[in-house]
Amino acid sequence: MSSKKDPDVSKKPRSAFSRRGFLGGVGVGGGVLGSGLLSPVAEAAPASGPAAVPITLKINGKTQNLTLEPRVTLLDALRNHLDLTGAKRVCDRGTCGACTVILNGRVVYSCTVLAIDAQGKEIQTIEGIAPAGKLHPVSAAFVQHDAQQCGYCTPGFVMAAKGYLDRHAPKSIEDVEKGLGGNLCRCGTYVGVRQAVLEASREMKGGRNA
């Protein structure tokens, strides 16, 4: 919340590094880096930002070139800069799962991943799991079992379920519950979600990791 107490409310970032802190061991790099406010610290590992820097993301198999501040999260990059709005911003603190995407085959909370940190990784969003006009088996099962109401948590649930089913074959409701313990719904759609994920698991048999 913007009313969080913070004595540094209006302070802008500034170069406050103790030079001494960086001299030991790594040596001092050459000139001032283009975008950095800080002293350059290591030739082999230049720092980017804090101003916007070029960022390249591979999303759903497509390369996207953006210019973003390092503080922009993957979720905000998707939603505000690429109009990929399937992932939702709900808690924005890595708790509710509405922003779930798959990164290098693993489900993550995109609200808590920096876009700059997602470079070089395979990013899969809900927009990329089925061709236009088609539904992924998980999405289809969610429709069939009415595993959604307002639907705002649903894309996150679908991605969490897909990520889970890509790696596991649940045998029971208990398995599904363990696999989806990182997502929350407010309307209370879990009864449908449990059934949908079990059904999608049957559908996806043989197609795992596809």
């Binding site: 590094f17 960086f22 082999a44 590992a45």
Partner: peptide, 19 residues
């Protein structure tokens, strides 16, 4: 707040970037 991001590939580089 804005910040600078560094992406070292070795421990040696990483510790050199700490304060």
């Amino acid at each position: 707040q804005p910040f600078e991001y560094a992406n070292p590939t070795t421990v040696k580089e990483a510790v050199g970037l700490l304060g």
